[in-house]
Simulated scan of single mutants.
Amino acid sequence: MAENNRVYIFDTTLRDGEQSPGCSMTVAEKLRMAKKLVELGVDTLEAGFPIASEGDFEAVDAICREFPEVQVAALARACTLDIERAARALEKGRNPRLHTFIATSDIHLKYKLKKTRQQVLEEAVAAVELSRRYVDDVEFSAEDATRTDPDYLEQVCKAVVAAGARTVNLPDTVGYSTPDEHAALIGRIVRALNGAAIVSVHCHNDLGLAVANSLAAVQAGARQVECTINGIGERAGNCALEEIVMIIKVRRDRLPFEVGIVTEQLFPASQLLSELITFGPQPNKAIVGRNAFAHEAGIHQDGVLKERTTYEIMDPRTVGVPESRLVLGKHSGRHALRDRCEHLGFELTREQLEAVYQRFIALADRKKGVLDEEIIALVREVVDHDSRPVAG
């Protein structure tokens, strides 16, 4: 795979992800999650926002010390105090990245920063130059890039690269973009920088398009995707790491890109995160949700039992899920019921299976799902009935 088709995964679970309600983590918890992210193979691990709290500073410092093999990033606003604080937190890192940002959209300039475009341009350049005094690898983010005037955005991007930024990140900060316009904007900046820096994206999910927009950006030339486990993050969340990675892995026929993720660690990473914060992914969440590899409909169950690929486009083991799950309910068929009975140790005749099935459907119509113990009781009821002596 050509180097220019390598897509770098920048994980921000411990920074943007942790900023969302219910997702705060202690330093010890961040270290546990960082260990799993290292095993997962992320290229860059954004460990925190050191100026925000003493805990964030300690987390960045501790992760740098504990995991020297991974690139650790720290976030800083485009101001001296933030940058110096981030640099101190990164001191023990072997290959640290300082990630500095400032908003560039007119709405942010007018209402939040109360600065002119020229002031923001100068501060962005100064922030990158200051960051380069401390680290070799500097990333610059143009906050709210997708609502920024494209001509001005291009001017800022060229200026920060000239100042020493190796990566230029273009966040869809409020999840406003659609894939076609996102691809057009990213493609423009990729062409403007002409290989002088990696173009990165950081997409939010306010309209449910974070993964789609990230994918469109990669197809347009972006070579870094910022994302989080389970898609956690501000408001509706971020691009879900497990989704963008598996799209690239599964659809190699359409997406000739390479990522360095150990996909078998995706589900374990999701499970650990769910343990550390206050909630897990919704059951129907792609890749890591409880129902992602579960089948209840009889037609689907029959197909999967005959040949898994009839209804599964990926082997669950490739993402760390031990096996598919056949959920027995009112939509299930005889094939799935027989399979479950065999797993429970019962070999039934066709007549016995039919008798169990009729009892099973009657029970399933009254419940959300049927437990193994209930199936065992149904089987024994039928088998015991068949074994009774016939009256002479």
Rank of each mutant, 00 (worst) to 15 (best):
Ala2Phe: 00
Val7Thr: 08
Glu18Tyr: 08
Thr26Asn: 02
Thr26Ala: 04
Val27Lys: 05
Glu29Thr: 03
Arg32Lys: 15
Ala34Asn: 12
Asp43Tyr: 12
Leu45Met: 02
Glu46Arg: 07
Phe49Glu: 07
Ser53Trp: 09
Asp56Tyr: 10
Phe57Ser: 09
Phe57Lys: 11
Ala59Glu: 06
Val60Ile: 10
Ala62Asp: 06
Phe67Met: 14
Glu69Cys: 09
Asp82Ser: 11
Asp82Glu: 05
Ile83Pro: 04
Ala87Trp: 01
Glu91Arg: 15
His99Ala: 08
Ile107Tyr: 03
Lys110Thr: 08
Lys112Phe: 00
Leu113Tyr: 03
Leu113Met: 05
Thr116His: 02
Gln119Ile: 02
Ala124Ile: 11
Glu129Ala: 15
Asp136Ile: 01
Asp136Lys: 15
Phe140Arg: 01
Phe140Tyr: 15
Ala145Ser: 15
Val156Lys: 02
Cys157Leu: 09
Lys158Asp: 13
Ala159Gly: 12
Ala163Asn: 11
Ala163Ile: 07
Asn169Gln: 03
Leu170Val: 09
Asp172Gly: 06
Thr173Ala: 07
Gly175Pro: 09
Tyr176Lys: 00
Ser177Glu: 13
Ala184Leu: 12
Gly187Met: 03
Ile198Asn: 06
Val199Glu: 05
Asn205His: 07
Asp206Gly: 08
Gly208Gln: 00
Leu215Cys: 04
Ala217Pro: 10
Ala222Met: 00
Gln224Phe: 00
Val225Arg: 10
Glu226Ser: 13
Asn230Lys: 14
Gly231Asn: 01
Arg235Met: 10
Ala236Pro: 00
Gly237Lys: 08
Ala240Asp: 06
Ala240His: 03
Val245Trp: 00
Ile247Ala: 06
Asp253Ser: 03
Glu258Asp: 13
Thr263Arg: 07
Glu264Asp: 09
Leu266Met: 14
Leu272Phe: 10
Pro283Tyr: 10
Asn284Gln: 12
Lys285Trp: 02
Ala286Glu: 09
Ile287Ala: 11
Ile287His: 12
Phe293Ser: 02
Phe293Glu: 02
Gly298Tyr: 03
Ile299Asn: 04
Gln301Phe: 06
Arg308Thr: 04
Tyr311Pro: 05
Ile313Lys: 01
Val319Lys: 01
Arg325Met: 03
Val327Tyr: 10
His331Ser: 11
Ser332Arg: 08
Gly333Trp: 04
His335Asp: 10
His335Gln: 12
His335Met: 08
Leu337Cys: 10
Cys341Ile: 05
His343Gln: 15
Gln358Asp: 13
Leu363Met: 15
Leu363Gly: 00
Ala364His: 06
Ala377His: 04
Val382Ser: 04
Val382Gly: 04
Arg388His: 03
Gly392Trp: 08
